[in-house]
Write a protein that binds this DNA or RNA. Sequence first.
DNA 1: AAATAAAATTAGCCAAGACTAATTTTATTT
DNA 2: AAATAAAATTAGTCTTGGCTAATTTTATTT
Lengths: 225, 225
Amino acid sequence: MIHTLSEENYLKCIYRLYLDKVRKITPTAIADMLGNNPASVVDMIRKLSDKTLITYDKKKGVELTVIGLKDAALIVRRHRLWEVFLLEKLGYDWDEIHDIAEELEHIKDSTLADRLDKFLGFPEYDPHGDPIPQANGKMAKPYSLTLAELKPSTICRVAAVRDTNSDFLQYLLKLDIGIGTPIKLVEIITFDNSLVISINGKENTTVSQKFGQNILVDDSFSEDA
Amino acid sequence: MIHTLSEENYLKCIYRLYLDKVRKITPTAIADMLGNNPASVVDMIRKLSDKTLITYDKKKGVELTVIGLKDAALIVRRHRLWEVFLLEKLGYDWDEIHDIAEELEHIKDSTLADRLDKFLGFPEYDPHGDPIPQANGKMAKPYSLTLAELKPSTICRVAAVRDTNSDFLQYLLKLDIGIGTPIKLVEIITFDNSLVISINGKENTTVSQKFGQNILVDDSFSEDA
DNA sequence: AAATAAAATTAGCCAAGACTAATTTTATTT
DNA sequence: AAATAAAATTAGTCTTGGCTAATTTTATTT
Ligand SMILES: [Mn+2]
Ligand SMILES: [Mn+2]
Ligand SMILES: [Mn+2]
Ligand SMILES: [Mn+2]
């Protein structure tokens, strides 16, 4: 079964809410995420239900069916593989790739994703640190611990970024923060929860709580001692 | 100015007719090529005229403006660059790439084509032997001499294929004919203009006139003696 | 429990891009 | 020159995927 571009974007949005463990996926939640009108969302919920990609129940909200879950994962797979391609092969910066991948993910061909995967050397993570779903739709657990949740004096590595907004990514480039960069959380300013951090051993910098909530970290070092 | 997917497909179609030196590009000619209804074509002619990509005059038919010509060439540029990518990097066969490139050519990003061009090593021809337009919209003259037009006993090389239909390309694969393959035209059967040819020095084979009209050849050997 | 607010749904409208059927214009034959 | 055929155009319809405005349903407050 093939899907239209719009159907795929809705499906991906529902998948994201599902992964974020939103207890009840409502028309308004979807509308907010896509910037669409709730009335339009209700229409699409009907279409996706008819295609048995989702179920909808006033009590339970929207839920993905087994087919819907797999199809959504495969769209995300294509998105993230194309992001790797754009960054590694075509030399784009990490703040430029998301919007292009947003179009490339909809290219229809049964073997394209797998060929791209092979060509790229079977990458496990995309340039933003997000895990790439496999051909069977299975995906590794995304990172979930944020910099803002750490205790002071903790040392960690940047594992992924939550936001792929271009402004945020460019800010990170300026701060010299990328995937893998070691960061030490020096202090939390109790007044506004600002974070004093040391990036890669350099002098201290202060960033906002919002900033810290968008950096996903790995605080378990097996390789780095 | 950005164009919709449909606008781009119409523009490309008109560009093709222009390159084929069709004396007067009419709504029916466009409709036939795209498999659309002439009424739909008339609608789109209005849209493309409003965007000053073409002019339309009952006497002269459709003509590309300078902008329309360049934009059309850039769509073809993207199509052909993606075809090279799919064949050389992802390992597709030459009969599989056209339809996928038909979608990829519409991806919108100002630097994508040039980056892809560089990544592929600035190829001059696509896998079907068609010249790839440059970033400025200029393109080398396509090959135009067909196998069916040669005199018997002529030896040539396959330079390009006119048709990118999958059946035709698979037939060529089976006959072991690709771009660059040497072919000798042994004899023309006067009854139905069938062609007796020798592929790469092998024993004679007979092919139809239609077949010969879809093989573009180079009969001037500078490198091959 | 009533009142109020928020969310969901319905109804109706719009644009793009396709179609068919009918009509008008242009070209070809006789 | 008429008759006929072909091509172009117009008018009206359909589907997809948006929208707004109005209504109904569900949740929260008071
Ligand atoms: Mn998308
Ligand atoms: Mn990403
Ligand atoms: Mn196309
Ligand atoms: Mn080609």
